[in-house]
Design a binder for these strands. Sequence first.
DNA 1: TCTGTATGTCAAA
DNA 2: TTGACCTACAGAC
Length: 296
Amino acid sequence: MPEGHTIHRLARQFNDVFGNARLTASSPQGRFADGAARIDGQILTGAQAHGKQLFAAFESGVILRVHLGLYGAWDFGGDETFRGASSIGAPRRVGERELGSEEVSYTGPPEPIGAVRLRLVSAHGWADLRGPSACEVLTPTEAAAIRAKLGPDPLNAARSDDGAVEFLQRIRSSARPVAVLLMDQNIVAGIGNVYRAELLFRNRIDPMLSGKQLSVEQVSMLWADAVVLLEEGVAKGRIITTELANRDRPDDVHYVYRRTGLACLICGEAVFGKELAGRNLFYCPGCQCQVRHLPD
DNA sequence: TCTGTATGTCAAA
DNA sequence: TTGACCTACAGAC
């Protein structure tokens, strides 16, 4: 589930298993052969997430940028230092196998299965990347330019006021619907369709209100809640946005996301689903809309 | 064997 | 606003 929390977990895992390790890089699929050659044999000095993108720095200064898109995923495997290093990205994939505790000792990476764009191998284990929408090697200047365009990431800016202020300014200066703004990575980085729907529900905000129509308090609440939800997502490894799921109803993990036609968990009214700017939007008219509007 | 699906993004019209 | 793209899998035929 590649929203921002996924990539932060990925960055952490990269630092855990590959930090300060010398890596060989290859592209079994062939599509990233040139890029792999530019990082092959180098030490990975550190990985960082910004929104949904991973930036991994190497000793020569070059930076590997990976965006998983809808389908991308990383698989990991290796010796005991890789225990707990799980697959990250799109759901269940070919070649994924659970490393049992009775596993024989690690002797090296397996034959690549499927379209492996990039394989990284250390002395202790390996990582395979499949299906990313972006995978490239950048100079520090190029990487900085990409990051400068992104909005604040609640997981990076949580403890500074800068992120909150920037978010407030960017939201309240726009006439576009807040539901669209939350998905715009130049406004705020790391929120995807699930967090968008759930944030708006939890704060009882009508998705079709423009940024300008929101109060300072509403925008502040959205930011603070984004920090909470994303941090929980990092901790749990999945997106759980309801209190119910934490108590006695483990299946009710979302209030409105993908619940079209079902009764709202709070007010009982039917949840609506409609397409907005090419993405599925879910909301509860009873809880979120002062003025009822039906899906178009 | 074919189709539908997906938590994303971009370029072209 | 639309289609293209990246990949793998479940389910239908």
